[in-house]
Design a protein around this nucleic acid. Structure first.
Lengths: 215, 215
DNA sequence: CTCCGCATAACCCATACCGGTTATATAGTT
DNA sequence: AACTATATAACCGGTATGGGTTATGCGGAG
């Protein structure tokens, strides 16, 4: 059974050349071509494609918005972004919107058919230059998240338990009940935590614990 | 000028077959092969490769640790992970450690040479199945980060000021002083905030404010 | 012009939290 | 055996928070 494909692209020439290309391989069947994404949900509903080829720059609803709409309605649909843009912003937004692949138009031809087949086997075709951007985004996110996590406060296991309970909003009394220790023991632990984190109130503890993800 | 390549892999057969493969193309020059990453920094220092092929599973220092060490010492080095593993954990760690590409061993051969060339032109070769995982990681990170940020609590500008002060660890008295309002007014605002955030203590406010980045 | 949201402010009372200090038992170290 | 870290526990006194209630002045929506 052939792979059903829908094409969204505002450029008629590109649409036609893609159709020509895909028709040379019996593995593909173009079931719909659309010049805008205004009615993409209905278009997909009626043409029932396995794979959607999506341009980004289009009049009206842009490709990224369309991806959001489509993945919301059809969570398992495979969407391959094909565009001339390769800025971080659009790459990131497309992925977050739910695209399964992202390839550049300047290297379509041979790779497009491979890319579609990869989509069907659970892969995510990506142009190497796009992949580089994706990696950079991930690495940056990692740094932003993990950077302040370095400082070591030498909290004991018990103190971390208490700390977690505090961050979860429990009162001293509740913490004592949860950990099967007395109210005063909870206080003892918390005093120690205050010392080690160099703070003097629960609010500061919570802020510090979350921001430096100690919990 | 040919691309200088260093290989880290504990399997002698794999090392040899990679060398054989790369030697068929004059664009490549293997300048070092190492069975472990114990002395990877020195190895790279002496062999001066443009591209490092790195296995993950190795005795002693594993490939991900090696990537961290190498990118720390040589920030501009290109490291291509080649492994049989494709679990989220290792993919994520490798990228965060600073790898520029990640391909699976079961599809080396033809693609390895292409991958190395892509690295040199600023691309990040990735096996499609790896790329899928990377996209999933990004999408999840996005959801975790952005999802809880949507809820609108209808805090007024003043309430947000008070909230920020709370998160910064100020006491009611200090907040009053900072905002030039009375202690009791601060309390009034905080009571309102409790209502709107559906909480009943400062610790909960701080945790909620930070986690849902209201501040 | 009246009602509502907002910012301001005050009061009472109860409970929670903070700081300092002290103490015991246990386990691991030197 | 003496020392250290950890977990446990208690007491006192002081300050901070939390809940409920009420009130005033201002500005915008109807």
């Amino acid at each position: 059974m052939s792979i059903r494909i829908a094409i969204f692209d505002d450029n008629k020439n590109i649409r036609n050349s893609i159709i020509l290309l895909l028709n040379t391989d019996p593995a593909f069947e173009v079931v719909g071509t659309f010049s805008d994404a205004q009615h993409c949900v209905e278009n997909v509903l009626t043409s029932r494609p396995d794979v959607v080829l999506m341009d980004i720059e289009m009049p009206g609803v842009n490709g990224i918005e369309a991806v959001k709409l489509l993945t919301k309605e059809f969570p398992h649909i495979q969407i391959l972004i094909q565009t001339v843009f390769e800025d971080d912003e659009r790459v990131f937004d497309s992925i977050c919107a739910g695209a399964s692949g992202y390839i550049l138009k300047n290297q379509l031809n041979s790779s497009l058919t491979d890319a579609i087949k990869e989509l069907q086997t659970g892969g995510s075709p990506m142009s190497p230059s796009i992949a580089r951007r994706v990696l950079n985004i991930l690495q940056q996110g990692y740094q932003n998240k993990k950077q302040p996590a370095n400082e070591e406060y030498n909290l004991t296991a018990r103190e971390k338990e208490v700390l977690t309970a505090i961050v979860n909003g429990l009162s001293y009394k509740m913490i004592g009940y949860e950990l099967n220790i007395s109210y005063e023991t909870v206080r003892s632990h918390i005093k120690k935590i205050y010392e080690k984190l160099h703070v003097a109130s629960l609010t500061e503890v919570v802020a510090k614990a979350i921001n430096q993800n100690i919990v």
